[in-house]
Design a protein around this nucleic acid. Structure first.
Lengths: 177, 177
DNA sequence: GAATTTCATTAAGATATCTTAAGAACGAAT
DNA sequence: ATTCGTTCTTAAGATATCTTAATGAAATTC
């Protein structure tokens, strides 16, 4: 499947360009997530606070990925997570209402997003299965291999949060590699 | 979005009904997954063998869920996992080639599967985040609450495999509830 | 229904991971 | 350069989880 030039151009006209400073939020919990972001340049994290007030990172997003809180975006309910830029960020985004009406006008766009969602699901499953079955150590080294310069771009305590281990223990793991 | 009666009827005509005996495979690793199954009645598990030959269960599927190995089905590559009936099973299934050509003929069906995939992704993410952050004990009690009669339907060592803990330790967890 | 196999429990000692607390390294602010 | 705050490391004792092995219970086979 591919778009005609004119279709591609039309689609691009629907996108907004956004910039965020380091530490700025793309989405805060409680808000309705109305944008689907395509990350041009940067690194973002998705996280929430657990009952004891500790930050829990559930996802990192990098260049060339779509990022949103699907649960809030699709079902139009308040987000339970925050999405925050960890680096100065540029994104292209499309609004929920515009996307929905574009589906009606241009079936090819609906197909595009069907395929994007399928690929996202596949990636999510692969990731989830790896996360479920691998040891902390393998998860750590798998993670830093999958994102370029990850250890330079993100403080270690955030990686520990994502892996759901303590920073102290992560420090231990790195030593014995 | 909803289908006209005639569209619904047409779509149904594309489905095959399948039955599987207990322990029979819907899909074996190495095969191409050509079917997307809708489970009418039963419980299936998706699993693989790790390097040391141990079964690792990555997913259970129940009534009214779609089950397939997306990675193999969508990308048409050999499956890395097995899908097996744990109970006598009835499914409706649609073949990959038929589904693809139906997308071209009936955009509403493409929409239907876009939405199914979106919902699947949302469920997968919710599940994955819970799995990543919860304790073994919470994961166990969360799991058995989410599937009716789960402890009666599935041997405990399979639940342990899914949770990635030993059956002995699961036994311990149940005791101290 | 006895024999066999599969599954679940229990317990002891081993390993993985956490908690707490302290010190070291680094960068930002003065 | 000094100070301060943040992040990372180290270590000791605590808790979670695993391994192994034995026993008991349930299901399956003959």
């Amino acid at each position: 499947m591919s778009l005609e030039d004119s279709e591609f151009e039309y689609f691009c006209s629907l996108l907004e360009e956004n910039t965020f400073k380091k530490k700025e939020y793309l989405l805060q919990s409680g808000q309705l997530c109305n944008h689907h972001y395509f990350i041009i340049e940067c690194l973002v994290r998705t996280f929430y606070f657990d009952d004891s007030g500790t930050e829990k990172i559930v996802q990192f997003g990098i260049e060339n990925w779509w990022v949103t809180n699907m649960d809030s975006f699709i079902k139009q309910k308040p987000s339970s997570v925050n999405i925050q830029a960890l680096e100065p960020t540029t994104t292209l985004s499309i609004r929920k209402d515009i996307l929905d009406s574009t589906y009606d006008k241009l079936p090819k766009i609906e197909r595009l997003f069907r395929i994007i969602t399928e690929n996202w699901l596949i990636a999510q499953q692969r990731n989830s299965h790896f996360y479920m079955k691998a040891s902390s150590k393998d998860r750590y080294f798998g993670l830093i291999k999958s994102i370029p310069n990850f250890t330079q771009r993100v403080p270690q305590y955030m990686i520990a949060s994502y892996l759901d281990i303590t920073p102290e223990y992560l420090s231990e793991l790195r030593k014995t590699h």
